[in-house]
Simulated scan of single mutants.
Amino acid sequence: MLNRPLPLLLTTGGLLGLNFPLGKLAGAAGITPLFWSLLMSAGAGLVLALALWALRDRLPWDRQHLRYYLVTGAVSNALPNLLVFSAMPHLGAGFTSIYLAFSPILTLLLHSILQGRWPSLLGAAGIALGFAGALVIVLSKGGVDSPGGAPVLWLALAFLIPLLLACGNVYRTLAWPAGTSGLALAAGTNLGAAAVLAVLSLLWTGSLSVTAVQAVPGLLLAQIAITAAMFAVFFRLQRVGGPVYLSQIGYVAAAVGLGTGTFVLGEHYGLLTWLGAVVVAVGVLMTTREQQAAGK
């Protein structure tokens, strides 16, 4: 499994998709998106650092690694999570998750421009098909609590989520410090995100109060465990599959977000939403086939 892109993709995307119902429940408990993002990043970073220690690996702290942790933590973790958790009260958990499905095509464009080459016809067609499925879902609006009536500002701001994720996907590969394990980068990225969010929290609220979290300790532990597990697999997928293939976790996460929104949170979606999800699945299978043919 550790060298097979598809199981890594499904595992990472599935774990990522679970963030949406957990984040919505945290918001319902009165925890701000900023502070919830901070706690999940700090907790996951500490868990991954302990795993490194247990494996007798190390967490490098030279200037190159610190820059990587902070940039990756901010672009790939802190800011997207903050936007996700902030948008969910306005758009719904399932509907917000759909925006992740736009990251593959944006990643493909950025990576192709920087590398000066394009993927094979099959790979490009698979990503385009996945994008088309995601577009069908968004245009259908899923029937989730009348998202069409949501403030236009949040509908627009949510598009920053896939853009940030795409930038992070490409940056992580291009700036990956030589000789550093994925687990070490996962720990450092979460700690870097926590540092960025802590500064934002202090500037925004002037404090780091944990009072609200005391009412949902189990929810927080679940969020930390899922985030730590997701990032441990995430960086392995980055190394094995590359940034474009990895970006398709957005498709998987969107499907999981739709499922949990329906069966856990009681949100409702129309037929076009589910047809779009099927199209997304076909697109993932096509790009997986292309990845195997390329020998990755």
Rank of each mutant, 00 (worst) to 15 (best):
V280F: 02
T173F: 09
G261Q: 01
G73T: 07
V284A: 14
L183Y: 08
Y269P: 00
F235D: 11
V170G: 13
W36Y: 15
N19M: 13
A212D: 14
A186L: 11
P243W: 05
L185R: 05
L2F: 08
G30A: 08
L122K: 15
H65K: 02
Q115R: 14
P60L: 14
G23P: 05
I113Y: 04
H90D: 07
G192S: 05
L50Y: 03
W154S: 08
Q64G: 14
P217N: 10
G92E: 14
L70K: 07
T287L: 12
T32L: 10
F235L: 14
G218A: 12
P33R: 08
V233M: 07
N169V: 12
L10H: 08
V138H: 05
G149L: 12
L191A: 04
L164R: 11
A132E: 01
Q291M: 10
W53D: 07
L50D: 03
N190P: 00
L109Q: 02
T273G: 00
L203T: 00
L18K: 13
L135Y: 04
G259C: 07
P80D: 15
L39F: 12
V256L: 10
M1L: 13
L200E: 00
V75R: 09
F102I: 14
L221Q: 06
T96F: 01
A54V: 08
A87Q: 05
S140G: 03
L271G: 00
G94L: 14
L139P: 02
P33G: 11
A178N: 08
G130Y: 06
G276Y: 00
L82A: 12
T288H: 11
